[in-house]
Design a protein around this nucleic acid. Structure first.
Lengths: 156, 156
DNA sequence: CACGATAGACAACCTGATTGACTATATGGA
DNA sequence: TCCATATAGTCAATCAGGTTGTCTATCGTG
């Protein structure tokens, strides 16, 4: 009977797989006119689309402080991916909205991710890829957009 | 015929899987007497064991500058995970070595990772888990320790 | 023995996160 | 109606971890 692989390989492979996909996404995004996009920006834009329409909301969705979310929005605004307008019904709030450029980057990202998935399917087989996705769904939280992603690696 | 899942789910699931394992590792490490360990520390300690016995070497192994590696070593030294001695044959070099505490943290990590892997195997089946690992090996770089991990997310 | 390469340290700077404090605006209850 | 409290956004200080550039000490070789 063959022994199990060491447990430490699994997280590393998961991370490497993630990293490979994200790196290829951004290499291709750069080729398609979005050289300034960073991994975090895609997550933030997604979070903004799904109801994170103010700094506080975005912070809640991404699991960071409202100040950090505000800085991210500032960066995205400077890069031309979002714009802010005041909420006429509550002048404290500043509504964040994707610009055409922001929407374009998300559409291209979706297409590129589909292409990358197809390449993995070619490599390991569509059946195996579906199984891999189904298995990961079993061992990860259901809501894929509640990432709490930024800064959890290494920080404090 | 059923349509493919959207491509963007794959990287997110990979990341979430990674994150779940790392978070549980560190929760358990904290319970076992290593509350100060951060994800990066584990990688650095591993890299130090595998031939990264000076700042320059560690930097090369981890894909960061020697200055960044030096800062990491400083942190690990302050936390009591490594110690530095001068190389008697080359007084420029300062040899980094794991302390007993550093070695203990790696042994515990290995055991915890094995336990976590077993839990995944219970959940999705040993066969499926082996298939998942094998498939990921096909689509990721061979050397699992050359991560270039720090700072690639969001940087520039 | 002198010169080029290497190891480590120091400084300045960048990014992205945090907490704390402050201002302005809403909102709900006495 | 008015005041207390909660909320949105911003500013400032701080931290971690990364970068590049510079400097010194030491090594090793032609």
């Amino acid at each position: 009977m063959s022994s199990d692989p060491p447990g430490f390989e699994l997280p590393l492979r998961l991370f490497l797989g993630f990293r490979v996909l994200i790196d290829e996404l951004h290499a291709e995004l750069a080729r398609q006119g979005h050289p300034d996009m960073r991994p975090m920006h895609g997550f933030a834009l997604q979070a903004i689309m799904r109801g994170g329409d103010t700094a506080v909301e975005l912070g809640r969705t991404m699991g960071v402080s409202k100040q950090a979310a505000g800085k991210t929005i500032e960066t995205l605004e400077r890069l031309g991916y979002v714009e802010r307008t005041v909420d006429p019904r509550d002048t404290r709030r500043k509504i964040v909205r994707l610009t055409a450029r922001g929407a374009d980057s998300l559409e291209r990202s979706a297409r590129i991710f589909d292409d990358l998935r197809r390449r993995w399917a070619d490599e390991i087989g569509e059946e195996r890829l579906r199984a891999l996705e189904a298995d990961l769904r079993k061992v990860t939280p259901p809501d894929v957009f509640r990432l709490d992603v930024p800064g959890w690696f290494g920080g404090q």
